[in-house]
Design a protein around this nucleic acid. Structure first.
Lengths: 314, 314
DNA sequence: TATCCTTACGGAATTCGTAAGCATG
DNA sequence: CATGCTTACGAATTCCGTAAGGATA
């Protein structure tokens, strides 16, 4: 048994059972991959893949049993490298953050600046995507840290830690009727065309819930993935916007006014997620603490240590 | 990086930093081991071992950080093999049980018989030792299951599951004054020379505690590792014995009489332990359930899954 | 001086890629 | 018939054991 065999199996599952693709990804020849897999199967004396003729189609039952163990070994090989790197250069390396637009645009900049000052030698990489894409990147090992308000708690492969709470606000162009000083109510809000986030983004679920609970059917004329797009069209007079309070800036958004809507929609929790079982380098722990001071290294380590599931034979 | 390198490092720590011994254990040459270690250190770019001149003396700080990860990888390689074996021959393999004398002699026989009938093709291996030796065998991976009343809960590397409760009894030769029918009391018991287990064996701690709490200093004339020895000398008239109730058999021990002492000494709990992080084959789970019906496969798996600690960089 | 690890070297085994073969959609 | 996996073969590399070197108790 050797690690290359394990990598071949793992990558074959990831790449949808195409050995040709696996060979490309692992920078080797396709017969090589074929042989690696066959040799591992021979040694373990089980077929890992089901074959339709000569093509691999899916995992066998034994294959499904051994795959999680293989994945864990490969993850630990990474962890081994990381642990060592933390000694060769504690402040040297890469940090890939996956975040939604809302986080990347409004919540992260301060932390990124501080972090760059602390660890100037760490190459920062910021990826933007939907909450599900953020989760996917973490699971695939393509990102070290994921930050989003939605979805992250729903994956068993991830550990999601609470960072901060925030509420929505309603934005309208200067001079809009809603800005007459009267208290903001859901019924009144629902009378205007509304611009807000797409489903699955930045607390949209809480907005829908609130309207549904009140028996209201708001007319959502534009839904976008980010507040900047929403603000643009609100400013053009297409309606009123519902966005995260974080996205409104008095100075920058001179043409708009904001009304707090914390009493209308449920509070949102932004979470930071990491892949279960990954070892975090010192600077990663440091970034996390910079972003959310309550998430000290020891808090994060405890969360990691508390529940790494181990598979047993069915 | 390859698995042989990891094995070399792991074994070097186990064998007290003697590469010569490691080479013998791994059936290879000593320069080979030296090279494996050096190559891993080169690749990780950290020194794993401290060297006094040319001899390895101990782990470096990075070495201590990477060692647990290396151990986990090697354990998972074993787990991988086991998972596969469970498919090639579900009822074929080896089962090594480490147990104390008390367990091997009185508690295990019934379970062993049942198990042999269920899995005639599994080679059973029963090792006997002190509770600490039992624990050591589990930690070293030399035994799959450990059973003892003492010590097993004290090791972070092990998971100890409760099997059954038992109490002590007092044994005396037929015709002994203690057998006059009067209720058994600690004070009266302490007047006779006592034969019981050695410290660290079969509930001896609970016996000492009881006497100490009562302010009594019993005269222990013989302490032994097992009840058979104790019974022999009690029968010869050297004093009264305090042994596990399980060790007394009315029919077999005709020269002796037993008085229940459940009210004098605290109840004992016999535990079954397994090494954290090990995958248990189907027949191992089956044996455990045979021995302690409350420990069903799902109970054991849950216990295994609940708390596998993951190290993070300090 | 004996023990133990490292370095050097040469042979053997392994590994890997190319090319051909063959089955499937 | 094109795609994709397997088999076959030869070359290159890697690996490993023996032998010599050097440091320490």
């Amino acid at each position: 048994m050797n690690l290359q065999q394990l990598r071949s199996v793992s990558e074959t599952v990831r790449r949808g059972f195409s050995l040709t693709k696996v060979a490309a990804v692992l920078h080797t020849s396709q017969p090589g991959i074929s042989r690696q897999i066959r040799e591992l199967e021979d040694e373990l004396n089980v077929e890992i893949f089901e074959r339709a003729g000569k093509r691999l189609t899916k995992l066998t039952e034994p294959g499904a049993a051994v795959l999680p163990i293989i994945e864990r070994i490969l993850l630990d090989v990474q962890n081994l490298r990381r642990a060592a790197q933390d000694f060769t250069g504690r402040d040297l390396g890469h940090l890939t953050i996956a975040a939604t637009h809302a986080q990347a645009r409004y919540a992260l900049p301060a932390a990124v600046l501080d972090f760059r000052a602390l660890y100037p030698q760490v190459t920062l990489n910021l990826h933007q995507g939907s909450p599900r894409q953020v989760a996917q990147m973490l699971i695939e090992g393509e990102a070290d840290i994921g930050i989003a308000t939605e979805a992250l708690s729903q994956y068993g492969e991830l550990i999601a830690l609470p960072c901060y709470r925030w509420t929505h606000c309603v934005i309208a162009p200067v001079g809009h009727a809603l800005l007459d000083g009267a208290p903001l109510q859901l019924e009144r809000l629902a009378r205007y065309p509304i611009l807000t986030y797409e489903p699955g983004f930045t607390g949209r679920a809480r907005i829908d819930e609130a309207f549904a609970r009140a028996g209201l059917k708001p007319q959502i004329v534009i839904s976008a993935m980010d507040a900047d797009v929403i603000k643009t069209y609100v400013e053009l007079g297409l309606g009123v916007g519902i966005v995260s309070t974080l996205a409104y800036d008095e100075v920058r958004d001179r043409g708009l006014r904001a009304l707090d809507a914390g009493h209308l929609f449920e509070v949102n929790m932004t979470r930071l997620a990491i892949r279960r079982g990954t070892l975090l380098r010192t600077y990663v722990l440091s970034f996390i603490e910079t972003f959310a001071p309550s998430l000290t290294p020891s808090v994060v380590k405890d969360a990691l240590a508390s529940d790494v599931a181990l598979e047993t034979v069915s």
